[in-house]
Design a protein around this nucleic acid. Structure first.
Length: 290
DNA sequence: AACTTAGGCAACCGCTTTAAA
DNA sequence: CTTTAAAGCGGTTGCCTAAGT
């Protein structure tokens, strides 16, 4: 692989606020040192998370706030789980990805101690290749051979450069998947401008979690084993949601609410839990979630 | 042993959303 | 209502290193 040239000095690309926040101090980039880690960890433990923009100045770090937040979230947080992804975690990632697509933060939210970045990297470097080796399209989880050619799915609906320039880590995947031709529609094809504009599964910072959910992207619930009926309703709901609404206000009908969806995600932890979930009567949730 | 290639992963970037002013 | 700050997200980049030649 041709090694990429080091990035040019990108201070010009830094946001104005970042520059202002650091008051002309040259920002340090690249890998964090142990000393920086210690300063940041101590500061966050003392002052708490938040106010990332001004944190570097207050903590005496020559980093931008974004960098500090990322370092804390992905590496320094005390609840980060170290070590390789276990088999059951891998299985759960696969299940969740099959339903959620590239919503790494949502997937990470179901794997305690794992970060979205870690899962994203693991997916790109391991799992996508594993699926390809199994003859499955890593984006749709559908068979590659004989399957309708897959769309360059951009689940978030705002994949700026993705379609034109696949990530380096994804080049193999793209090469393996792309030649098939024109894309296939996702299971739920959003058609409205709202969907096209990218209603996102982004969590609200205020609620701090993944229990506040809107959709724009393909949801592959039809490929979830044992998803007859219940899945149809989910898909219908998601389709409606994707067309601009939320679960509880789409078309004026009682829809699957956020708690139900959260419950469903929880059920993906294992086949047995999923079976329990269905057995517990959630098939009826479509009529009116509690 | 020297060099090249490819994989893994940490870090960065651009963008969007939300809340506060 | 508008503007701005803060936070978060997914995609992308590039460094490091193991494996291959």
């Amino acid at each position: 692989m041709a090694r990429r040239k080091p990035r040019p000095a990108q201070d010009a690309a830094r946001s104005a606020e970042d520059q202002a926040a650091t008051a002309a101090a040259p920002l340090k980039r690249g890998p964090w040192t142990a000393e920086e880690d210690e300063v940041l960890a101590r500061f966050v433990e003392r002052e708490g998370e938040g106010r990332w923009r001004t944190l570097p100045r207050r903590a005496g770090l020559l980093r931008c706030g974004k960098s500090c937040r990322l370092r804390w979230m992905n590496y320094l947080r005390p609840d980060i789980k170290r070590g390789p992804i276990a088999d059951d975690e891998e299985d759960l990632i696969l299940r969740l990805h099959r339903v959620l697509g590239n919503r790494w933060s949502l997937i990470a939210g179901r794997l305690p101690g794992r970060t979205d970045n870690e899962i994203k990297n693991y997916w790109n470097s391991h799992l996508s290749k594993k699926l390809i080796a199994q003859g499955l399209d890593p984006r749709t989880h559908m068979p590659l051979a004989g399957a309708a050619p897959s769309r360059k799915t951009a689940p978030s609906g705002r994949s700026h450069a993705t379609a034109a320039a696949p990530a380096a880590a994804d080049k193999t995947v793209a090469a393996a998947v792309e030649p098939a031709g024109p894309p296939a529609p996702p299971a739920v094809q959003p058609t409205s401008s709202a969907a096209a504009a990218g209603c996102d599964a982004r969590d609200s910072p205020a609620d701090g979690g993944d229990d506040d959910f809107t959709f724009a992207a393909p949801m592959r619930l039809d490929v979830v084993p044992g998803f007859d009926g219940f899945g149809d309703q989910f898909i219908a709901d998601y389709g409606a949601a994707a067309r601009g609404g939320r679960f509880d206000d789409v078309m004026g009908c009682p829809m699957v609410d956020d708690d139900t969806f959260t419950s469903f995600l929880d059920s993906l932890v294992s086949e047995s839990q999923f079976a329990d979930y269905l057995a517990a009567g959630h098939k009826n949730d479509q009529g009116g979630a509690s």
